[in-house]
């Protein structure tokens, strides 16, 4: 069971009252704007959820695992996500509660 864009659109339909079309477009636009900001080199900070940051990685030596041939891994920019304290707390709390429940049985 995985949460997808369709599930998020359903939530907008239920909770915000957007129609199906608007809900689908809104979910698409939400991720589109975040992507555009990151593509421009701008960090995205969503308080209560987490931050999407950019890291510039220098070139480093790599190896073709099949042939053992050395090939450099080119310098690149990558996205990293740092969950907020709130999100980390929610994850830990839910897990702790689940553990407690199973030990009570």
């Amino acid at each position: 069971m995985t949460l997808t864009k369709a599930d998020l659109a359903d939530m907008l339909f239920d909770k915000v009252g957007l129609n199906k079309r608007e809900a689908k477009d809104m979910v698409e636009a939400f991720f589109d704007e975040i992507r555009a900001s990151l593509a421009e080199g701008d960090t995205v900070k969503l308080s209560g959820f987490g931050n999407f940051q950019l890291r510039d990685k220098p070139q480093r030596p790599g190896r073709n695992p099949k042939t053992g041939e050395e090939i450099p891994i080119s310098a690149r920019r990558v996205v990293t996500f740092h969950a907020s304290q709130k999100l980390k707390g929610m994850v830990e709390l839910h897990y702790a509660k689940q553990q407690q429940r199973s030990s009570n049985h």
Binding site: L3, D7, L8, M11, L12, K15, V16, V27, F30, L46, G48, F49, K86, L87, M90, V91, L93, H94
Partner: peptide, 12 residues
Amino acid sequence: TILDGMARSLSQ
């Protein structure tokens, strides 16, 4: 709503 839904889903 989107962020809450994502946070809830992931924490579960």
